[in-house]
């Protein structure tokens, strides 16, 4: 009898301890991610005087002094424009190449398909610093250095694997019978794609585009190495970090992080789908 009585006591105790561990881990990870963002936002929304003052405020004073100083800082407008330009080009290139690749992977069987999928991922295994010097040399020779399209090409290689994998999972989630039904109802392959597959895949493709945009927007290393005059915002901030005042750093950091966060939050559903969690 005693054995029977002991188990119900021991089991909830263990479960309780497990729950505590889970909660603690979740809190720790959340703090790890959220605390810097919190500090960034509080300081970006405080006046320059408050940023350097002590003790700190827990709530921002919603003073836009730091932000307006950042916006009017020489070169920021141009860097911001460069960032948007490069990110937009990256977005167009990675969807332009990635979506057809994703479609082909999901619909056709061809020799080396598995290897191709693996290689797509492998492109992320090469550290960018290793490639930066040869790339810079090659870009200077071809005249691509310090241009938006040159940097966009590098960012595309970074974003492309994700574009391929997201769209692959997206197209795989659309039953092939829908396409076949369209063929039997009078569509060519292209018409079936345009009238049936595209409307169904469009939200996901848009999400994949936004993700590519964010990758380019956040990228700093290649941007710093490959641009001099036409700095993107990340490269510009990295360059001026040493000599700029603290409140400028906070405002710049916020300007970089907030759009990226909003974009990723908007498309999070599709990023989970990338690994086939949502589909299949």
């Amino acid at each position: 009898m005693s054995v029977v009585a002991e188990i119900p006591i021991a089991a909830p105790a263990a479960r309780k301890a497990g729950n505590w561990l889970l909660v603690a881990t979740v809190i720790l990870l959340s703090v790890w991610v959220l605390l810097p963002i919190y500090l960034l936002i509080v300081n970006a929304l405080s006046s320059p005087e408050e940023v350097t003052a002590f003790p700190k405020r827990f709530l921002p004073s919603f003073d836009f002094g730091s932000l307006s100083f950042f916006i009017n800082f020489a070169g920021v407008g141009r860097a911001l424009w460069n960032s948007v330009l490069v990110a937009t080009l990256t977005m167009i290139l990675s969807i332009g190449f990635g979506a057809p690749a994703g479609y082909a992977l999901s619909r056709f069987d061809f020799p080396g398909k598995g290897t191709f999928r693996f290689l797509v991922l492998m492109t992320r295994a090469f550290p960018l610093p290793l490639l930066a010097l040869p790339l810079a040399v090659m870009f200077i020779r071809t005249g691509l250095d310090d241009t938006a399209i040159g940097l966009a090409l590098v960012h595309t290689t970074l974003a492309l694997p994700f574009a391929v994998l997201i769209t692959f999972s997206l197209f795989s989630g659309i039953p092939v019978e829908l396409e076949e039904a369209a063929w039997t109802l009078g569509c060519t392959r292209l018409q079936a794609f345009r009238k049936v597959i595209l409307p169904l895949a469009l939200p996901g493709i848009a999400a994949s585009a936004v993700f590519a945009f964010t990758i380019s927007w956040n990228e700093v290393f290649a941007a710093a190495v490959l641009t001099i005059e036409n700095r993107t915002l990340t490269a510009f901030l990295l360059q001026s970090l040493g000599e700029s005042p603290l409140y400028l750093k906070f405002a710049g950091g916020a300007a970089l992080v907030i759009p990226a966060l909003i974009f990723i939050f908007a498309v999070r559903k599709y990023l989970f789908a990338m690994w086939g969690i949502a589909n299949r």
């Binding site: 019978e177 829908l178 076949e180 039904a181 063929w183 039997t184 009078g186 569509c187 049936v196 409307p199």
Partner: peptide
Amino acid sequence: LPPRDRGIAMVFQNYAVFPH
């Protein structure tokens, strides 16, 4: 010939009704 030129119509097991 491609399916559209065969004068056929098909009903699929999972219906394939266009969701959009």
